[in-house]
Design a protein around this nucleic acid. Structure first.
Lengths: 267, 267
DNA sequence: GGTTGTGAACATATTCACAGCA
DNA sequence: TGCTGTGAATATGTTCACAACC
């Protein structure tokens, strides 16, 4: 940023790139493992390998945080752990609530990875009256009626939504009204939230669909090497009307109960 | 791509950008919802709103697939559903195995979103002999010993790993040796895999850490507006030794049971 | 010698803005 | 007139390659 002389890096710390932020937890994990093995220092090359990135990227990422390494030596493991933790805001602990204690919500409540790094599950909340008081992961499930009270009494700013898709938007609105400003959404819906609220989305089926895309490519390449046309490649404009008609037919023939499932496919 | 005249879009279909691929499932979900409501056509503006992106991005994305819209009108919902499904490889169905049937694995097995879109859970696999034969989501859990047999008999190319971190690398190696070429990894580890194998990673605690980063920023901004130095903002180089010492103190005072927590800090 | 930190080059992704077509 | 499809402009991210420093 600042060219050459000035030792103070201008006004840094403004705007660490998102891509970098997203990798800091990876570095932190790798560093924590080294720390447990009492490794005192590590080079960008070694750490990068442990985190599954390349070393140039890692050095660039760290350069946004400051000059925390020593040329000719590497990085002090403990020191970096602290710097990254602080940058990520993990030196304080964050109470979170999990809303929707179905299979997934229960799995999340039991997931050790939360507690181990600055996050504390403050409450489990579910709309089902039958769940009320039931212990999950050692805590009693509380009813949605008390959501607002729970949020404000615990000073919760981060909420995890693990409800069915249909409930997610409304839950998010209540969370936000009660003071939550960051949401981790496991429900397969797009949440619309006001400015200033962060939403991150974890979607199991989307990840699988992305894998399927690449998997298909692999299969397609093999096939293409063998036969000329696999019927899967580029659909020339001339086929458009045909496939459109076929798609319409397919659509007409569906109509499942919950209707999420497609049916026949055209030629 | 091709300038002006030629109606055939040159050699397209080579290389849809990753960012676009990652959004196709979102569009597909929005389109499916419209399809269920029997909406015949949709504009880029409407569909973009439903998918939570802006319309220019959506149109650009679709332009990589081909010219599937009608100017002045919009997109035919059924036709687009089909085109995107085909592009993603969802017109065939993909058998998947889930390895590691703990809380999370069970939640995944029960998750309806898989089956509903071209994915079929072919088997549930766990290393614990006590789990063998136990029904989860209506299927008997099978033992890891039979992993290779299960993969090859079912023609599985996609595997989901929901084991503890320690087991994940070894499981991935066995999956790959048996023929799996795409892995969805829920274990908090970096997998190293040979070229040609795709890995996607879902990491709950990483997502929370990213949220915490932004959450901290918000808090920092408020504080900065009030007092001058919140102790959270830019740490000038002169403070470096001090903060390191503070970190040492903080670290010494922690000490979790499983020891995921670091210890001393250097000067 | 060894390794960081970083400009400069390159690559990818997003957004703008408007020509082209129904 | 209305909306798509897309070049061009911009923004963000990655990689290269090497000077600076221990």
């Amino acid at each position: 940023m600042a060219t050459g002389r000035t030792h103070r890096p201008a006004t840094r710390s403004r705007g660490i790139p998102e891509a970098t932020v997203a990798r800091l937890p990876l570095y932190l994990r790798a560093l924590t493992a080294l720390s447990e093995r009492s490794v005192p220092t590590v080079s960008s090359e070694e750490l990068a390998a442990a985190a599954g990135v390349n070393s140039a990227k890692l050095r660039k990422d760290f350069s946004y945080l400051g000059s925390y390494g020593t040329r000719g030596v590497g990085y002090d493991v403990e020191y970096l752990v602290y710097q990254i933790s602080r940058e990520l805001g993990l030196t304080q602990d964050w109470p979170v609530v999990i809303v929707g204690i179905g299979n997934l919500g229960a799995a999340l409540a039991n997931y050790g990875g939360f507690a181990s790094r600055g996050f504390r599950v403050a409450a489990l909340i579910d709309a089902d009256p039958a769940m009320k008081g039931k212990p999950v992961a050692g805590m009693p499930v509380q009813h949605t009626d008390d959501l607002e009270k729970i949020i404000s009494e615990n000073g919760v700013h981060i909420g995890v939504i693990a409800t069915p898709a249909g409930a997610a938007q409304q839950v998010s609105e209540r969370l936000i009204a009660a003071g939550v400003t960051s949401i981790l959404n496991f429900a397969p819906t797009v949440l619309s939230v006001p400015d200033g609220v962060d939403v991150r989305k974890v979607d199991l089926s989307i990840e699988l669909q992305i894998l399927a895309f690449h998997e298909q490519r692999k299969a397609g390449e093999e096939a293409a090497a063998v036969a000329g046309a696999a019927g899967d490649a580029v659909t020339p404009p001339s086929l458009r009307a045909d496939t459109a008609a076929a798609a319409a037919a397919a659509a007409a023939s569906r109509k499942g109960p919950d209707g999420d499932v497609p049916a026949v496919m055209p030629a």
